[in-house]
Computed example of a mutant assay.
Amino acid sequence: MKVSNRSGIPITKEDLQRPGGFWHWVWRHNVPVTIVEGVKKAGALLTAGYAAIAIPGVNAGYRTPTDEYGTAIDKPCLIPDLKHFATQGRPSVRG
C-alpha cells in the first residue's frame, strides 16, 4: 500500500481486517493525515501515498455550538470524525 510505503510503517492483512481497517491503522500509528475539500483531492492524495480525509466544504470540519436563536454559546470544536485523528504527537503534513 502506498500510504504504508510512504510512511515507512508496515500494514498487515490483520490490520486491514480489524474494525476500521486502514483508518484504524492510520490512527494507531499516528500516520500524518491531510484534510482536504472534496473527494477528488483526497483520492489523488491517497493514490500518491498520503492518508487524506475529504470534507465537503472548508468549514465542514468544525461546529460551533449555538443556542435556539443561533447565537454561539461556546468555542468551535472539531467534528467527532476529525477529532478522533487529532492525537498528541501526530506529525503534520504541509504542502
Rank of each mutant, 00 (worst) to 15 (best):
P80D: 14
D81F: 09
P76G: 04
K2F: 13
D81M: 11
D81R: 13
A48M: 14
H24S: 14
G43W: 12
D74A: 14
D67L: 02
G20D: 03
W23L: 03
D67S: 03
T47E: 15
T64V: 03
A42M: 03
E68Q: 09
T64A: 00
A60N: 09
S92Y: 07
A48D: 13
A54L: 01
Q17E: 14
R90M: 08
R94D: 04
V31C: 04
T64K: 01
G8D: 04
V31K: 02
R28G: 07
G21I: 09
P56F: 07
T34V: 15
T71E: 12
V58I: 14
I79N: 07
K40V: 11
I55V: 11
K75C: 06
N30S: 07
P10I: 08
R90S: 09
T64S: 00
D74V: 06
A52H: 03
N5V: 15
D15E: 14
K41F: 10
E37T: 10
G95W: 13
I35D: 03
A51V: 10
L78I: 08
K13A: 08
A52R: 03
V39L: 13
A42W: 03
G89V: 00
G38T: 07
D81A: 11
W27M: 05
V3R: 01
L78G: 06
P10N: 12
N5I: 15
P91N: 05
V26D: 05
R28Y: 06
C77I: 15
A72H: 00
G89E: 01
R94T: 05
D74E: 14
